[in-house]
Nucleic acid binder design. Structure first.
Lengths: 317, 317
DNA sequence: GCGAAATACGTTAGTACTTACGTATTCCGT
DNA sequence: ACGGAATACGTAAGTACTAACGTATTTCGC
């Protein structure tokens, strides 16, 4: 699913879709069993059922909606004969909502259905349902304490003011080389033996044969890396390009690519190629813009199982 | 929050609220930073940006919405000058959506904002954000394989056909006594020392002093329990009433209560009381209906910290 | 005890979708 | 080659909300 690849950017859309799915399923069940209620009524009806008559604002706060929403929903419930509106004699501003006898009759027959919903969701989603509920509860709590918008703006400030720089390999950065590459390998593919070797000892597998490794730093954070591997004298492979998922879109990949190409020229390389996978469309477009040209078939004797794209750098772009 | 107490029944409502929250936060950020887009545009714009021009249906499937929604959103994007509609020359039915130069310019400047969103949501919600994403992905997958509505209807069928019966204590049921009580204790309070003792060895603490324990079975499952404890000769306490959360609403609690009261009479008891907590409104209403009357103050020398309600059974109801 | 502020609620207008439907265009079997 | 089925899309109508506003009623400060 495409939305999943957007990560936290598309949280709203995915939550909405899930929400609609559950509402739809509930209504399907109510219809199939002839229950005289709709899924959207449930919070109001259950609240009045559980805690007795209540005012519009009280109900609205309990179920996390605006008083207008409750008021409009009440219109429908009154029309359906489930709820009565009464002026509060003690406070003329308030409207007290009360379940009618019809509603009491209807709701008391719904026990088995609600029970089936609880259990059916559980059997259909297994443990994921509880995980989802737990995650929702945790997020509701966190959002009440720390507004997201503020946190995002603070992050934006930090990102904008921190300088983005490309630095060459240093032993202290070895673990970052592993971390940044493991991230995308694990997400999209799996770590092959050759990856494990190279990521574990980049000095031996990349630097000693005459290659180079660069890192992108944003302030104190190491957010990306890319390597230039000398395959044979004068023939270089661009490989192990990885940018932290949460730092994509800052141009770190492009800067790393430029640094590698410059290094390739500085060393008087003759050919520069790369192998990649067609799933990584964003990366492929970046390679193309930098001057790599798609080859008609994969490279012979490729190191990687996942390689289904072979690109070669053409000097003149 | 009231909705949380409804468990899986209110999943739709809570997901919707969360969804709206994230949309709102995103829009707040876009406004604050002067970004020329809205949160609802993101899936379409990002799709076109990531994978190039696409048809209405193609976009709709990728972002999980109807073609109508995409078509109407396209109207807005065209009006905003971000997207162009073009007839597909190869297939006159299709409309190809393309980003305008203006959109390309706008989107290429949004990298840092999207990056800030990813990171800001992460810092605000900490690990909960990833848990939520994982749970969403897992549920999306599960829902595609097993429709919830069917699972619910199957559960309903099983519940309706299984007989609900009340049975007395048997050693094989001891673990159920613990399980059913631990469930509500852990959810609402904490397990006190006296609970641990009684739940661990009900034969010694309840049966031997002249009490009784009943269980509610639904088919093969043990779904509830309740105990009658002889405090002093002729004085009984109703205690340890617990019904599995996913089996509430089937009347098991009421049946257990009736069984205990009948047993109290059978043993010629003089007084019957219970201690509870004002948070357990549903249970209190059930006790009231069964003939228990709220006392003005808590019982002297109560066993429990959590007790703030004291009720005494009045024969005549 | 009186006027301003706060509150409670309903109404209106608007948004972001959905379902249902109508109209092109293409596909496909004969 | 042609008629019906499938498809692609747009439009209309409806739903479930929210935000904004208006109008009662109550509360509060002095």
């Amino acid at each position: 699913m495409y939305l999943a690849s957007l990560g936290k950017l598309a949280l709203g859309s995915r939550l909405k879709a899930l929400s609609d799915h559950f509402y739809g399923a509930a209504d399907e069940v109510y219809r199939a069993l002839g229950a005289p209620i709709e899924s959207r009524w449930l919070p109001v009806l259950r609240y009045l059922w559980d805690t007795g008559p209540g005012t519009v604002t009280e109900v609205a706060q309990a179920i996390g909606q605006t008083h207008s929403a409750v008021s409009q929903l009440t219109d429908k419930l009154v029309r359906a004969g489930m709820v009565r509106r009464r002026r509060d004699p003690a406070d003329g501003r308030r409207t007290v909502l009360t379940l009618t006898d019809k509603a009491h009759g209807a709701l008391s027959g719904l026990g088995p259905i609600w029970c089936a919903v609880q259990r059916g969701v559980g059997t259909s989603l297994e443990a994921h349902a509880s995980h989802l509920l737990d995650a929702i509860a945790a997020c509701e709590r966190a959002l009440r304490e720390r507004p997201v918008a503020e946190a995002i703006l603070a992050e934006h400030d930090a990102i904008r003011t921190a300088p983005l720089e490309i630095v060459p390999y240093a032993p202290a950065l070895r673990e970052h080389f592993h971390r940044l590459n493991a991230q995308w390998l694990e997400r999209h593919f799996r770590i092959e033996d050759i990856d494990r070797a190279v990521l574990g000892d980049p000095e031996r597998y990349i630097l000693e044969p005459g290659g180079a490794i660069f890192f992108a730093r944003l302030g104190d954070e190491v957010i990306g890396t890319c390597a230039l591997l000398q395959e044979s004298p004068g023939a270089f492979e661009l490989t192990k390009m990885g940018v932290d998922e949460t730092f994509r879109g800052l141009g770190a990949g492009k800067r790393l690519l430029e640094a590698c190409i410059a290094e390739f020229h500085r060393r008087g390389g003759k050919t520069l190629f790369l192998e990649s996978n067609s799933r990584l469309q964003t990366a492929l477009r970046m390679y193309q813009k930098a001057g790599f040209v798609m080859q008609p078939s994969v490279r012979e004797g490729s190191h990687y199982e996942r390689a289904d794209v072979y690109m070669v750098y053409q000097r003149g772009e």
